[in-house]
Design a protein around this nucleic acid. Structure first.
Length: 458
DNA sequence: TCTGGGGTCCTAGGACCC
DNA sequence: TCTGGGGTCCTAGGACCC
């Protein structure tokens, strides 16, 4: 962008509108313009809705079994979540944003903070509109852009960008909003409910409500001491940010993970030891894969289980943590540590609804192993590592679960429900859609550069 | 029948140390 | 009457995020 007339810095929050639903529409033109919802894992809850589905009043987070009849009545398209697709679209989105900003923090699968220089006047609004057009043209994804002097204000501006209809205020409209370009930012802050503020969740929202703090402006102007007593330094920082004093820096290099978790609900209650062992084995092997991808080893692991919190009976939950003799990311080593716990976690008459594994005490792979105590000779160790790399490579290339440990079971009875899955249009060669011969469809379905890199690396 | 998954940060309190 | 004080580390739990 043109920095000649910069008068300060600004932060933009750019995110995908109804991201999962929009991804589904990108790979299946037949659903564009139709009401569509995406379900969480296990086809549990509604986690994303197209604009048309929102307009029907379908609520976020509703359990699918409760909404099902309603959805059918309105002819809503229903999709199981397809994380391979969303992750790939996310990589493309982030890559397309890079050239537009001075620095980019990828904050979540569908949003990123961008560092900008602020030119005089309303030039940022034009910039934001062009960015939107560019992403739409390249990827077919609609995004919203909020701009402000701090992250918290950029998030709020993004709210306003989504809210304001086209032809709206001087601050933006049509998917963009700049709190730095409006005459009266206070009135805009006063128009945002306090629960919309980033960092105000259910509990704090309720506390604010009781306290008579109803909107973002009131939160900004309330006594700092009181906020500090209630929410500590987090509250103070939040208030500073609302005042336009940036104290949350852009995190450009993601910090190494402190723990890594894999957990799933079962499609039906698990009562048998063998089934629990299979589930734990599956989660451990996925977690080990993640560790290797992150180039980390775990020094400790926890396996946890839970009964259903919904069936009225008392909740049973239990977790066991074990320390590993030596930090590892070798699936076989982690399995040997985790599998014996299954028996201790299972209780008669306590059907389990969910289990998971938590990898803890993570350390970088580069750290030297203490060979003196290594359980395997160096040569054997290298063979194990090569084996893991080969398994990971095949699973990346041909899809997760192509190569599995026998302990995970074949076609397990407890496996996740995904009855309405869309194709893997951007990540699997077999699922690439055939192009229509109408007009100039953009080249949306090329494999992303990152996916290609992954393959070569594997 | 059927209610997601994966994280982070902060604080309070206990254990332990000198 | 009156039972140190200050620091660090760890953990559990709470709150938040998408």
């Amino acid at each position: 962008m043109n920095n000649k007339a910069a008068v300060g810095s600004a932060i933009a929050l750019i995110d995908g509108n109804n991201f999962y639903a929009s991804c589904e529409a990108v790979v299946d033109p037949a659903v564009r313009g139709r009401p569509l919802v995406v379900l969480s894992n296990n086809d549990g809850c509604i986690v994303s809705r197209s604009a048309e589905a929102r307009a029907l009043g379908i609520a976020m987070g509703t359990p699918y079994f409760q909404a099902r009849a309603e959805l059918e009545r309105h002819g809503v398209v229903v999709r199981s979540s397809n994380y391979a697709l969303y992750a790939d679209m996310s990589e493309r989105l982030m890559a397309s944003l890079e050239p537009w900003v001075e620095a980019l923090e990828v904050y979540s699968i569908d949003e990123a903070f961008g560092q900008l220089r602020r030119p005089k006047g309303e030039a940022l609004l034009d910039w934001a509109q062009q960015l939107r057009q560019d992403v739409l043209r390249q990827l077919g994804l609609p995004v919203a852009v909020g701009i402000g002097p701090s992250k918290v204000l950029a998030k709020l501006a993004n709210r306003l960008a989504k809210r304001s209809p086209a032809g709206a205020p001087p601050g933006g409209g049509g998917g963009v909003f700049d709190l730095g370009a409006v005459d009266d930012p206070d009135s805009w802050l006063a128009a945002l409910p306090v629960a919309d503020v980033w960092g105000i969740g259910r509990q704090l929202g309720e506390w604010c409500r009781r306290r008579g703090v109803a909107d973002a402006k009131a939160l900004r102007d309330m006594p700092t001491g009181e906020l500090r007593r209630k929410c500590g330094v987090v509250g103070v920082r939040l208030q500073q940010e609302l005042r336009g004093i940036a104290c949350l820096p852009l995190e450009l290099a993601p910090a190494p993970k402190r723990e890594t978790c894999v957990s799933r609900s079962f499609s039906k209650p698990v009562k048998e030891l063998e089934q629990l062992r299979e589930a734990i084995a599956s989660y451990v092997s996925r977690a080990a894969e993640k560790l290797r991808h992150q180039r980390q080893r775990a020094g400790m692991l926890t396996v946890f289980v839970r009964s259903s919190p919904f069936n009225g009976t008392s909740l049973y939950r239990h977790a066991i943590t074990v320390e590993l003799p030596l930090p590892s990311n070798d699936t076989a080593v982690l399995l040997a540590a985790a599998l014996p716990l299954a028996k201790q976690l299972l209780r008669p008459h306590k059907p389990l609804q969910k289990a998971g594994v938590l990898m803890q005490a993570l350390e970088p792979e580069t750290q030297l192993q203490h060979h003196l105590f290594a359980p395997l000779p160096a040569e054997e160790q290298q063979r194990r590592e090569a084996l893991m790399a080969a398994v990971d490579g095949l699973n990346r290339r041909y899809g997760q679960g192509t190569l599995r440990w026998a302990a995970c079971g074949l076609k397990p009875a407890w496996a996740m429900r995904r009855e309405r899955l869309s194709g893997a249009a951007t990540t699997c060669i077999h699922a690439i859609p055939t192009a229509h011969a109408e007009g100039q469809e953009p080249a949306r379905f090329k494999r992303s550069a990152a996916a290609a890199r992954r393959d070569r690396g594997g």
